[in-house]
Design a protein around this nucleic acid. Structure first.
Lengths: 161, 161
DNA sequence: GAAAATAGTTGCATTTGTCCACTATCCGTC
DNA sequence: GACGGATAGTGGACAAATGCAACTATTTTC
């Protein structure tokens, strides 16, 4: 008979995390912490590190010339206020510039700069590699599956905001 | 022939998010924002809302009497400093209490209180339901699959910290 | 017994985001 | 074409969380 395993559990493997063991949101939230930290390291010093949204914004402006801050806000799941400040930062860093829309003078159109475009180029590689490396214990097949499923969820959430 | 779709893209569906479209970390990070917000709403006023870690800590202490702050730190992927403050809060709210370990007077053992146990009971239901509802567009089969995969990743990450 | 490692605490700084109110502008309707 | 309601962007105040580094107290190692 094994010795009674009472008393403070010490090894991480013996720990019971209760219903979280089968709770998807728990894994999403936890892995988010880890993957975001890892990504920040890889982006160190790049004008685009820290927080969600900068990278997405960079790509959005690079690939969709004239896109508006409010559209970006919906896609990065932040409010206009936060998005505005984010655009401020990126403008200060010379990654993009604003223009008032000709159609609607309330709105702005965002355009990438040369510097921004170059950064996008660099970041493209870093981000792709980082994600694949971080999740390297997941097979290609599973990886594809995960993305297909989570993409649906993301689209649903982004669409309704 | 369709009219040229040049000019500022307006509908979210037409937007190109570049390589992020196939980047798992992007989905994890984005969905994390949404699912965390949704969860916070469901937990409103419950001593356990906001930030990652409180819920996990509550369950850990409830299910693993005598568990140490440093063990919790590894599981919630925070440093001891942040974990300590988190335990402070929960102690102030009367959810758990500390005792100095008899074996090692540097270490503490954490125990749940009656109030903490009751809260755990409530939160168990809320958390499970919230996750399943949030991801309700995912089939049971896919859901199971996702969890199995992400659990591996979480364990790997938690183990090495 | 001395050095190195570990547990926890605290101060500090930084970041980040949310809420709310305010202005300018556009849209639809009477 | 004037008015009310929605929408775009901005700015301020505020709350919170978290990470780092330094420091104390113990324990472990050699």
């Amino acid at each position: 008979m094994l010795p009674p395993t009472k008393g403070p559990p010490t090894s991480i493997k013996d720990i019971d995390i209760d219903v979280l063991e089968d709770t998807l949101s728990f894994y999403i939230r936890s892995i988010n912490l880890a993957v975001s930290r890892d990504l920040d390291e890889k982006l160190e010093g790049l004008d685009v590190a820290r927080g969600t949204g900068k990278i997405t914004t960079l790509f959005l402006v690079d690939g969709n010339p004239g896109i508006r801050p409010s559209t970006i806000a919906k896609l990065i799941l932040k409010d206009r206020s936060a998005t505005g400040r984010l655009v401020d930062q990126m403008e200060e860093h010379g990654l993009l510039f604003r223009e008032t829309s000709a159609d609607d003078s309330r709105a702005q159109e965002l355009y990438i700069t040369e510097k921004g475009h170059e950064l996008a180029e660099r970041v493209r590689g870093i981000v792709t590699r980082q994600s694949r490396e971080f999740f390297s214990d997941i097979s290609d097949e599973e990886h594809k599956l995960l993305i297909d499923i989570l993409r649906r969820t993301y689209r649903r959430v982004a669409a309704q905001s």
